[in-house]
């Protein structure tokens, strides 16, 4: 019932868009049906997959690096106060700011795009890793030592919820970097397609591109949530019990 209401409201908004598009004459708001029809002009193999592939590759590299570095720095307790401010500064650099320089250093290549996506996705995971590793229950480490297990065998599962929370933020940033890196100095990809459509006044195609981006964003978030729920089932259950 409530679900139906939500869909009804969404449908109503789409209808308003459609009617506005049909009656308006500015050409800036084409009817939604035109945008949907334009979806056919977007080739999944040449327009969508390269973008998605670069985003996923950069995300995977960034998250892996961030987790490794974050846990290592967090584990080396003495190191943390020395590197912390420098890390906080590097993390605070808005990733798009390095794009022009990255283009200069690496050229307008896929490798450059993957690099900037990875560099942007790394930080939320890295910082979460440092904080969570420092906060690992000392009792867990005692049990590991008395059981002759390596510390990492308890640190990794203990910090996993924090790493995944960081990765969730990293995912959003990876998508932003994917689009913006394709808007500057690119000849392919969804970001390029949208910008090009705008410049050539193919407004319906521009909206179609944005719809595809929205769907892509929705899809990766949904897959991420699925993986998260699977990997952290114990964590969610525990929270549920603690909360209720």
């Amino acid at each position: 019932m409530k679900r139906l209401l939500g869909l009804l409201v969404a449908a109503l908004l789409l209808l308003v868009w459609e009617v506005a598009g049909r009656t308006g004459d500015t050409g800036l708001f084409p009817p939604v049906s035109d945008a949907i029809a334009e979806l056919a002009s977007i080739d999944p193999w040449t327009d969508v997959l390269p973008s998605a592939g670069r985003a996923l590759a950069g995300f995977a590299i960034g998250v892996t690096l961030g987790a490794l570095l974050g846990v290592t720095i967090g584990w080396l307790r003495g190191l943390e106060p020395w590197v912390r401010p420098a890390l906080e500064f590097l993390r605070a650099v808005p990733p798009p700011a390095v794009l022009p320089v990255a283009v200069l250093a690496l050229g307008a290549t896929s490798g450059m795009r993957i690099t900037v996506i990875a560099a942007a996705a790394m930080w939320p995971v890295l910082i979460a890793g440092v904080d969570a590793t420092r906060a690992v229950e000392p009792g867990y480490l005692d049990v590991a030592r008395i059981s002759h297990a390596r510390p990492v065998s308890v640190i990794l599962p203990a910090v996993l919820p924090a790493l995944i929370a960081g990765a969730r933020i990293a995912l959003g940033i990876a998508l932003i970097m994917m689009v913006i890196s394709e808007m500057t100095a690119a000849t392919s990809g969804l970001g390029y397609l949208i910008l090009q459509a705008q410049r050539t006044y193919a407004i319906a195609q521009m909206y179609a591109g944005i719809i595809v981006l929205g769907l892509l964003g929705w899809l990766v978030t949904a897959v991420f949530s699925l993986v998260e729920r699977h990997v952290l089932s114990w964590y969610e259950d525990q929270k549920g019990i603690a909360g209720g």
Partner: peptide, 24 residues
């Protein structure tokens, strides 16, 4: 072998009871 003071801080929440016991 050691039984630590606070089970909250010594049992691993991500493992089941059986897996916790099997850890050593």
């Amino acid at each position: 072998s050691v039984v630590f003071q606070d089970y909250h801080r010594s049992l691993f929440p991500w493992l089941t009871a059986g897996e916790n016991v099997r850890f050593p």
